[in-house]
Design a protein around this nucleic acid. Structure first.
Lengths: 257, 257
DNA sequence: ACGTTACCTTGATTTAAATCAAAAAAACCG
DNA sequence: CGGTTTTTTTGATTTAAATCAAGGTAACGT
């Protein structure tokens, strides 16, 4: 999976004056309502910003956990590997999102994180962050909210993977990406996939062949135009309606009250 | 699913002198290394303990989130319901575990929680808890750890659901229950399932028929003796070895470095 | 205790997606 | 640029689990 060894390819971007105050992600990443003074404190907790090339690991399962990582640019793939070496992708992460929350409990990373594109990150030493949580209530609340949100999202994912067929999974995948890109200020209908069909299949619990076939069908049906990594959503509403099985069988599983 | 309306069936157990200091779950639920004084503070945050009968809801998706809930006794089922009314069980929770962490972000519950047996709970008003996190570092750390643990566990679940076949899923389910019961001081080999085959199937993404068939096969192969809700694990090691596919195909999915 | 209901098991058949196979299209690289 | 590798697409076949169907067994309520 890794194209090159994950030698710490850390480039100091401090000369660009990257601080939380002028970061265009502050709306996504920072606690809302934080005041100037506290913002300065938080910015001081950013140890460094760094850049990783495609295929480079930010961290691996088993690595000592020192810092939470906020994504500034690029797409990052998070995955675990089981005893047999089988990989399970847990998600694809975008700017403004936080990596490493699952490592807090054990002080060791439980996942692997790989940059899929040239990507930049901010690093927040966890000890420092915890310390700040004492004095900055908004930060504490935001931290809890970040983790809480992560849990909710994973719950939804569980439903998608467990209860949806291939078509519904892919439709959900495309719509979810669309919504996330929109939130980041990018086009909701035209985007470039950073991940391979292999990765999409692994994430959704499908084979690469099934992914390819379903995307082809979406093309033929005029839902999207996909050409390799490029996606254009033509009929958003119809694609959206494909996300949830409207099949009657749904009723069966819960002979409701 | 609910046998009776979830009228707040709250019984005040305070006369039993249930406090954190004498709670037999403190090892599981409380921050380690917390001192006497802080323990008292924390105990004061317990608003009430309450008892629910099988089928009663602790909370429903959409309910206002006020408190985190610690389980004292009994098994609790957590699930979400999608637009079509289809149910997805997210997990079964046992004494010492915390419910409601996913609701922090939105101030509303995103899941439904139902008691599967007569069960008792402690309720921690979230505002109060957050306040205590300011002054009790151990509590803050424990809170982060609880959430972090929840994320790791869900990651593992994702792998099981996405990459395992029916047999492996059931083996994993039985072994995981065994480990959790052991941790609680109960038998690791003899236990009673609190949930129906329907629930097991829903959780694992299998039909009730498949669950039944695989359990029958496990019986025939001398791995377990299951009689309705009772499970006795006969050959723990072999059951354990069934959890991970040792199939060579594992290699295929990641043409590793 | 009885009939009713809910739950569980087992068997036969179908099906969605996996696997097997091969060609086409991009990407990579010296 | 031309050859090699990797990724993607498409088709044919197989298969694990779903669905359909029916009988058995425990639990429930009056």
């Amino acid at each position: 999976m890794s194209k090159s060894p994950d030698s710490a390819n850390i480039i100091d971007l401090s000369r660009f004056r990257v601080t939380c105050s002028n970061c265009n992600l502050s709306e996504l990443c920072l606690p809302r309502g934080i005041n100037k003074k506290n913002l300065g404190k938080l910015a001081s907790a950013v140890r460094q910003t760094s850049v990783y090339e495609p295929g480079e690991f930010l961290f691996r399962a088993g690595d000592e956990f020192k810092s939470l990582t906020a994504i500034r640019t690029g797409t990052t793939k998070l995955f675990i590997v089981d005893e047999n070496g089988e990989e399970q992708i847990l998600g694809f992460y975008f700017p403004g999102e936080i990596l490493g929350l699952d490592a807090i409990e054990t002080d060791r990373h439980t996942c692997n994180a790989v940059a899929l594109e040239t990507s930049s990150y901010c690093s927040f030493p966890y000890g420092h962050l915890d310390e700040l949580c004492k004095s900055i209530p908004e930060l504490r609340i935001q931290m809890f909210k970040f983790m809480s949100r992560e849990l909710s999202l994973e719950n939804k994912l569980l439903l998608t993977l467990n209860k949806r067929n291939a078509e519904e999974k892919l439709a959900t995948f495309l719509i979810t990406l669309s919504e996330r890109f929109k939130r980041l200020g990018y086009s909701a209908t035209d985007y470039k996939l950073a991940m391979s069909r292999q990765d999409i299949g692994n994430y959704l619990g499908l084979t690469i062949e099934t992914v390819s076939r379903v995307l082809s069908r979406f093309n033929k049906d005029g839902l999207i135009i996909s050409e390799r990594k490029l996606i254009r959503i033509i009929d958003y509403d119809r694609l959206k309606s494909l996300c949830n099985s409207q099949c009657e069988t749904a009723k069966k599983n819960h002979p409701s009250n």
